[in-house]
Design a protein around this nucleic acid. Structure first.
Lengths: 339, 339
DNA sequence: CTGAAAGCGCTTACAG
DNA sequence: CTGAAAGCGCTTACAG
C-alpha cells in the first residue's frame, strides 16, 4: 500500500535513480538492456510518478483554474465542460471555481487558485473589483479572459461580437414587423449585456424607431429575473409585441410569465433569447435564439492559455472576437396587426 | 516576481528557517520579540507558503475529487456547487470531473484523480465498470459514494430513500384518481432509477392496480429523452392520464412533448418530476416534483469524507439514507373523467 | 552509456 | 527558546 518510488524501482532494476528517471521521461539514450530491466521493474512494482514531487521541481502543476460566474447557468456549465475536455487533452486538470456572481467569492477563488499554484487561469468575470486579476499577473500566472471583457489589459481575451449579435437578434424582430420591442438585460456592469443592448439600439436606429429606455428591463441572467421582468413589461402601457432577452435562461422565464398571463407565443408575443443552451429547444415553443460558438470559445481560450503557459507565445495580448449565429425557431413570428 | 520562500524570510528576520516555520504554523512557542520580527518579515516580503512543498512533505494535497455523471444536469450542478462550498469551508479545493455518462471518461477521471493525489473523492457513478473504484481503495484514497449506489462496499455512502420517494410520487397521482400512470425512467443500471420504479410499483400494488411494463419508458435523465418518451406514450393505446418522470429534466421534456401534442397540463395530463431543480418552478405549469435534499446530500458527503481523510473515522463504512419531500405545484390535478 | 549529488521549499525529529 | 540537518520524491546539471 505504500507508494512505490523511483528509488524502489532503481533498486529492483539494479540501476541508479538517474537512469530510472531518464527511462521514464525518455530524456537520454539508455542501453536497451538496461532500459528493458527498468521497464520491467516499473511494471512489476506498478510505479506511478509522484507529481507533487515533480511539481516542486518543475514549478508546474499542470493544473488550470477556471472561474465562472454561475455554474447553474447552462451556458457556463457547457463552457466549463468543453474547457475541461480541451484541458484534459493537453494533460491539464481543471479546478473549477464558481463565483456565484459574488465579487467576494470571486476574490476568494482568485486567491485560492494562486495558493494552489495553478499554471494558468481562464476567467469569466462576475464583475466586481477586477483589480484582483492583477494578483495573477504579479504571480506570473497567465490569464485568459473569456466571455466577459474586463477593463484591464493584462490578458488574452476571447469574446463574442456581442454588439453585432444584439443587432442581428433585434433586426430579426424588426424584419418581422415589430416596432415595440422590449429588452431584458443582464447586469449592466457586464460587458456582453451592455454590448448586446448597443446592438439592439443600432438596429432600432436603422429602422428609424426611437429608443425608449422604459422598454429596457434589467435582469441578472437567471430564470426568475426573466420572469419578473416580463411581468413588469406586461403591465407596460405600450404592450411590447416582442422581447429580446439577453440570455436563454431569462427568455425562458419570460416565456413562462407570458404563458401565465395567458399570452400565446409567438402569436401574441415574439421572444428571442441568447446562448442556444440545450434547454432552448426543450421549451415550448422552441426558442429563437442567438447561438454562441461554445466550442470555439472553449477551444480558443484553452489554446491561448496553453501557449502562454508553455511560453510559446510571449507577444502582446491578443483579442479573439467570435461571431454568433441567429437560430430561428418557433418563438418569433410576424407581428399580427390585430385587435 | 520570484516567489518569496521561507529562506528569504529567515534571512530578513535574522533567524533560522526552523523558527520561521514554527511561527507560521504556531507549532512551538517563540520569544515574542523574535516572533514579531518574523511576522514583520513575513508581512514585508508578502510571503505565501508553497503548498506543493508542503504537500510533498505531508503527503496531503488538501484537494478532493468530485466525479459527476453530467454537469449539465442542473441537479448535479447544484450538488457540485454545494460540495465545493462545504469543501472550501474546510480548506479543501475541489477538482471536478464530468464523466458525461461515459464509463471510459469515468475511468480516465478516476486515474487522473489518483495521479493528482487527491486526499479523497466524492463519487457519483455513471455506471460502468465500478471495479475502477477499487483503485482508490488500493491507493488509500477514501471515497464517499453519493446519490447512486454502487455494488462495492468500499466506501461510505450517502443516498436518498428512492423507493419511498418513488412511492410517494406515485401515491400522489393515485390519490388524485389516476389509474393509468406511466413512468419515464433513467438508465436501468442506475440505482435511483431502479428504486424509484420499485416505489412506483409498490404504490400501484397498494391500490390494486396491476403493473404494466408497457407503461414504462426508458430515458437517460436528459431533456430530449423525456420528450421522446412522452411522444411514445402519447401514441400508446391506453392513453396515460399521468406521468411520473424520474427527474425534472425529463419531466420538462415530457411537458413540452405534451404541449406540442396540444395537451393542456394538468387538465389532460398530470406530470410529476424529481429533483426540484430551480427550473422546475420556471416552466409552465410549475412542476410537481420530489425535492431532493441537495444541501444535506452535499453536507453529509463532504463531512464523511473529511472525517475519513483526517482519520477521525476509521470504523466500518456508513450508509446515510436521506428522505425526499414531495412538492405539489401545478402540473398535477385530479383526473378528469371526461370524453 | 551511466551515476552521485544538488536542489525544489517545506516540516520536524534531534540536539543544545 | 532556537538552530542545523534530514528528508519528502523527483529532475538535471556535472562528471566520468
Amino acid at each position: 500500500m505504500d507508494r512505490v518510488t523511483i528509488k524502489d524501482v532503481a533498486q529492483e532494476a539494479g540501476v541508479s535513480i538517474t537512469t530510472v528517471s531518464h527511462v521514464i521521461n525518455e530524456t537520454r539514450s539508455i542501453n536497451p538492456e538496461t532500459k528493458a530491466r527498468v521497464m520491467d521493474a516499473l511494471d512489476k512494482l506498478g510505479y506511478q510518478p509522484n507529481i507533487i514531487a515533480r511539481s516542486l521541481r518543475s514549478g508546474k502543476t499542470k493544473t488550470i483554474g477556471l472561474i465562472v460566474p454561475d455554474i447553474a447557468n447552462l451556458f457556463f456549465a457547457d463552457v466549463a465542460r468543453k474547457i475541461e475536455d480541451y484541458g484534459y487533452q493537453y494533460g491539464y486538470s481543471v479546478i473549477l471555481g464558481n463565483s456565484d456572481n459574488d465579487p467576494v467569492k470571486q476574490t476568494n477563488y482568485i486567491n485560492t487558485l494562486i495558493t494552489k499554484q495553478v499554471d494558468g487561469v481562464i476567467f469569466i468575470s462576475a464583475g466586481g473589483v477586477i483589480e484582483d486579476l492583477r494578483s495573477f499577473y504579479e504571480n506570473g500566472i497567465p490569464v485568459v479572459v473569456a466571455d466577459r471583457d474586463v477593463p484591464l489589459e493584462l490578458a488574452d481575451v476571447v469574446l463574442l461580437d456581442n454588439e453585432k449579435a444584439g443587432y442581428e437578434a433585434t433586426r430579426h424582430l424588426l424584419d418581422l414587423g415589430h416596432d415595440c420591442i422590449a429588452c431584458i438585460t443582464g447586469p449592466n456592469y457586464v460587458s456582453p449585456s451592455m454590448q448586446r443592448v448597443e446592438g439592439y439600439k443600432r438596429a432600432l436606429t436603422e429602422f428609424g424607431i426611437p429608443f425608449r429606455s422604459d422598454l429596457i428591463e434589467g435582469g441578472d441572467f437567471q430564470f426568475k429575473s426573466g420572469e419578473l421582468a416580463m411581468q413588469r413589461l406586461l403591465a407596460h402601457p405600450c404592450k411590447p409585441t416582442a422581447v429580446f432577452a439577453l440570455n436563454d435562461m431569462m427568455a425562458i422565464g419570460a416565456l413562462n410569465a407570458a404563458h401565465d398571463a395567458g399570452l400565446s407565443i409567438p402569436t401574441d408575443l415574439s421572444i428571442v433569447g441568447f446562448d442556444n443552451i440545450e434547454l432552448s429547444t426543450a421549451v415550448t415553443p422552441a426558442l429563437t435564439t442567438v447561438a454562441q460558438p461554445i466550442d470555439e470559445i472553449a477551444q480558443n481560450a484553452t489554446n491561448l492559455l496553453i501557449k502562454r503557459m508553455q511560453c510559446t507565445r510571449t507577444e502582446e495580448n491578443i483579442r479573439v472576437i467570435l461571431s454568433a449565429n441567429l437560430i430561428i425557431r418557433n418563438s418569433t413570428s410576424r407581428m399580427v396587426v390585430s385587435k
